[in-house]
């Protein structure tokens, strides 16, 4: 094995893959959120559809899309594989009496479960919007852009989707409340001056991003 594959198949190397892909996915969340905020514009989707058309056809964005798929792929594969390895490391016989809740937080112990909820959401979410836009002929709006806005409007008439989307944002919230600062620790980027700030930014980031995403289905269901 070469030193590179050895590095990234070691426990620390695999953790570094988790941290780098995790922070990359955080940057994706920012881009995705900023674009989607146009759903709240009172223009019946004109701006959102133009943005969506751009994202669907710009070659640079299409190239970045491949990076995004790889980022998700590595994060999900390594996340689930590490969770299985860690369960095996614990050994067959568990503790009869275990008070792990006295020394650690629930969400930090539930990253794989929270990630799996996000994964389930991701599949449904891609089916809802990405699948229709990429693989079917969607009606066009007055400007000739694919009418993604109406897809959103229709999807969020279904209360089941609204509930799933909101629950998934709670899962993502708790995933990131631990994950954001955890990634810095994994990368060895800790310092008594900056770590408290990283924690604070992580909390603010998680809450703002997830609340804004969760507001979208709620807004469409109740106000549109």
């Amino acid at each position: 094995m070469s030193w590179i594959s050895k590095t990234f198949s070691s426990s620390i190397g695999r953790k570094i893959i988790m941290a780098v892909t995790g922070l990359f996915l955080c940057s994706f969340l920012v881009v995705h959120l900023v674009g989607n905020l146009q759903l709240f514009k009172a223009d019946n989707g004109v701006a959102f559809n133009a943005y969506s058309e751009f994202m669907g056809h710009n070659p640079l964005i299409r190239a970045l899309e491949i990076v995004l798929v790889l980022g998700f792929g590595f994060h999900i594969y390594e996340g689930l594989a590490l969770a299985a390895k860690n369960r095996a490391a614990r050994g067959g016989q568990g503790y009869v009496s275990d008070h792990i809740e006295q020394n650690s937080s629930w969400h930090s112990r539930s990253m794989a479960m929270l990630g799996s909820i996000v994964l389930f959401f991701l599949v449904v979410h891609l089916y809802n919007f990405f699948g229709s836009l990429r693989f079917t002929d969607v009606p066009r709006d007055a400007n000739g852009n694919e009418d993604a806005y109406t897809l959103v409007l229709e999807a969020f008439k279904n209360p089941l989707y609204v509930v799933l989307y909101v629950v998934a944002q709670f899962a993502l919230l708790y995933h990131l409340l631990h994950g954001f600062s955890s990634a810095f620790q994994t990368l060895g980027l800790t310092h008594r001056k900056y770590t408290p700030a990283i924690k604070l930014v992580g909390y603010a980031f998680s809450i703002i991003v997830c609340a804004a995403f969760a507001a979208m289905p709620v807004y469409f269901y109740f106000f549109k």
Partner: peptide, 10 residues
């Protein structure tokens, strides 16, 4: 065969 740290802090 030890596991990989997930920064739980226990």
């Amino acid at each position: 065969g030890f596991g990989a740290c997930t920064n739980i802090g226990s």
